[in-house]
Design a protein around this nucleic acid. Structure first.
Lengths: 208, 208
DNA sequence: AGGCTAATGACAGCCACTGACAATTGACAA
DNA sequence: TTGTCAATTGTCAGTGGCTGTCATTAGCCT
């Protein structure tokens, strides 16, 4: 972020992101055109597409930040933690530090509202899920490295991440449709649901 | 399928599906325009969009059939099977009966090739994942009903399905990038990966 | 046979996205 | 400081996905 040029670019990008989220959350994703966003920031439509490959990317830009942090977070977990435990700690840490990561670009509250829009807009949800799949792959590689395994031959890293991500998806969804839209709420859900996985898998739900 | 009208409609739809898969698998999804598909079947573009809400839907039309069968399959599993076991059996049954379900519309081989295209085309993968999410929800409800639970209050149905689907995703992916493109191959992978879930979760990968 | 309704085709138009080129503006050395 | 170079932006034209509308066609049913 040295030169004036770079700072200017960053400002434009942030402004576009903010304008996009503002419009998406107030008016809806489909009801917002790229021209609307560009106009709000007073740049040409073409410029928007120089910053974002497509409309979705603007919608998911903030999330991208948090995902990046999450991957780093897993990589930095102490080596003695078992894979699942490392993932769990990294996510919880993620919720705790969300504020710092996000607030530099948009108000956290706006980001949280955007989450709801993503969950309820089919094309955004689709894009979100695909990115999650990419994240899973990245995490699987990190786990494999931690444990000294080859991700191509040993399925356990990918399986573990897939299971973990499955649980997180359910958590996100539940949170997004719930009343309590706070970070505390999602933190609590995360802990609760991860604890339930074991019991849920062991089958006999009627006696438990 | 009584009247001529209905039969004609079905034939048009199947023809569109077949033409779409043919073009997608040979030329690529992005390189195929809706006009190309419509022209191949000799109908107007407008008619294409009367049969499919969008281009993706044509690409995923065959899969839709198999998913529908799968959900039914779970519903019909004997009540004494534990949730995970019921899911497992339903999937395996799905692979076994794939031929009958698919062949009425397109050659199975074409469908299997299409699978590869889906996995390697970002926007198709995204659409596929979103539909999978919908399927998960449907399955969760079936499980909840089987076990006499309320899907809104008890997280276990959704969690179980999420875990199961996570494993199936890894399976599909692995299969789609592998050499052996047969149904036997994916069947074997399914069994192997499901067996690995338990061990993968229990943590200590270094001594196992 | 003839009226009714569903299915189709033909436009026209919106919006997401891209390539190409010209104009502007910051970077940096002379 | 200024001149040159490179990066950023705007404009314009075009493609392709998708939708609404309305006239036309074609199966249905008495």
């Amino acid at each position: 972020m040295e030169t004036l040029r770079e700072r200017k670019k960053q400002r434009t990008r942030d402004a576009l992101t903010r304008a996009a989220l503002e419009l998406f959350t107030s008016r809806g994703y489909e009801q917002t055109t790229v021209d609307d966003i560009a106009e709000a920031v007073d740049v040409s439509q073409r410029t928007f597409f120089r910053y974002f490959a497509n409309k979705e990317e603007a919608a998911l830009a903030v999330e991208e930040l948090t995902v990046g942090r999450f991957i780093e977070s897993v990589r930095e977990r102490p080596a003695h933690e078992a894979p699942m435990e490392a993932l769990r700690q990294a996510v919880l840490e993620g919720w705790d530090t969300l504020n710092d990561v996000v607030e530099s670009v948009v108000p956290v509250e706006l980001y949280l509202r955007m989450y709801r829009v993503i969950e309820s807009t089919p094309v955004l949800l689709a894009a979100h899920l695909r990115r999650s799949a990419e994240t899973e792959e990245a995490i699987a590689r990190v786990l494999a490295e931690r444990e000294g395994l080859d991700v191509e031959t040993d399925p356990r890293p990918r399986l573990t991440v897939a299971v973990f991500s499955g649980v997180m998806r359910v958590t996100e969804r539940q949170w997004s449709v719930g009343e309590d839209f706070s970070l505390d709420a999602i933190r609590a859900l995360t802990v609760a649901y991860l604890e339930q996985v074991g019991p849920a898998l062991t089958g006999d739900w009627r006696t438990a």
